[in-house]
């Protein structure tokens, strides 16, 4: 019924002989809350980079909203509504929290790239709203270098949202957050409008199952399974993939309990 926003078809990325992403095909419908999970080294971060364009594909096509964007440079994909947070924070360290978000917001709310510094009321209002949303309103004037790890993750989310994305890619956004911070994040992501399509990589399966309407499991660069959260939880193959990583316990827990803790 709903249209496909992001479509990956036969997407691969090789590092020398290593097939970090190997012939991956996924369709993400518009408005989806899609989770991408898999053990470390499965190729999740690499796959995100292929979608954002920060790294070229070795093979395959990436389609956004019906348009083949495989050859587009990263900044043009961003302008088409692809926004991301990186697994490892990438911020403007010497600038204040507010100015970091403003860099993203000013492109959306610009008033004909005015030379007059004051004329950015719309962008500044948006920044303030986003900082409240992620819980950093008291830190607006703090330089980013003085933020804690968890706060930086929150700031990443605010910056990604300030791009007013159509497709939001979050790479382990809750890693390093306190339980309170991460449940706030889940609340924020749950409140996003359906005009934002979310693809999230997350090791915290509480977060995953609180949000996701569909899940893709990646293993050794390949898609093991795409399905509903319940299908994924029940899958023997998925449990197999996680064996030896110490994470199987999360799956073997009685399903359902995980959701309660978060929301």
């Amino acid at each position: 019924m709903s249209t496909t926003l992001l479509s990956l078809s036969g997407v691969s990325r090789h590092y020398g002989a290593l097939r970090a992403v190997d012939d991956v095909s996924i369709d993400v419908p518009a408005g989806a809350r899609h989770a991408l999970i898999g053990p470390n080294g499965a190729g999740k971060s690499t796959l995100f980079k292929l979608v954002t364009g920060s790294m070229p594909v070795s093979a395959g096509t990436v389609t956004l909203d019906g348009t083949d964007i495989t050859q587009l440079p990263e900044h043009q994909r961003a302008r088409r509504g692809v926004s991301q947070t990186l697994q490892h924070s990438s911020l403007f360290l010497s600038q204040s929290v507010q100015d970091n978000v403003l860099l993203a917001a000013q492109r959306q709310h610009r008033s004909r790239r005015s030379l007059l510094p004051r004329r950015q009321a719309a962008a500044r209002d948006r920044v303030r709203g986003l900082l409240v949303d992620v819980g950093l309103e008291a830190r607006a004037d703090t330089p980013v270098a003085a933020l804690s790890h968890g706060e930086r993750r929150q700031l990443e989310v605010a910056i990604a949202l300030a791009c007013e994305p159509k497709l939001l890619l979050l790479d382990e956004p809750a890693a390093g957050m306190s339980p309170a911070e991460s449940s706030r994040l889940v609340g924020l992501l749950q409140s996003l409008p359906a005009s934002v399509t979310l693809v999230i990589v997350e090791h915290d399966l509480d977060v995953v199952f609180a949000l996701a309407t569909s899940v893709t499991v990646l293993h050794l660069g390949q898609v093991l399974l795409t399905g509903s959260p319940d299908e994924v939880r029940a899958s023997a193959a998925v449990q197999e993939a996680y064996l030896g990583t110490g994470r199987e316990a999360l799956f073997l827990d009685h399903p359902g309990s995980t959701q309660m803790e978060v929301s």
Binding site: S54, A78, S90, L91, F92, Q95, A104, S114, P117
Partner: peptide, 27 residues
Amino acid sequence: LVARSPFGATLRGIRDNEPRMRSLGYS
């Protein structure tokens, strides 16, 4: 004025973190 404008802010962003600016949609 140039340095204080949004254009100047963009330049400082490029100075501090060029790859990130690209991912925010700046060339």
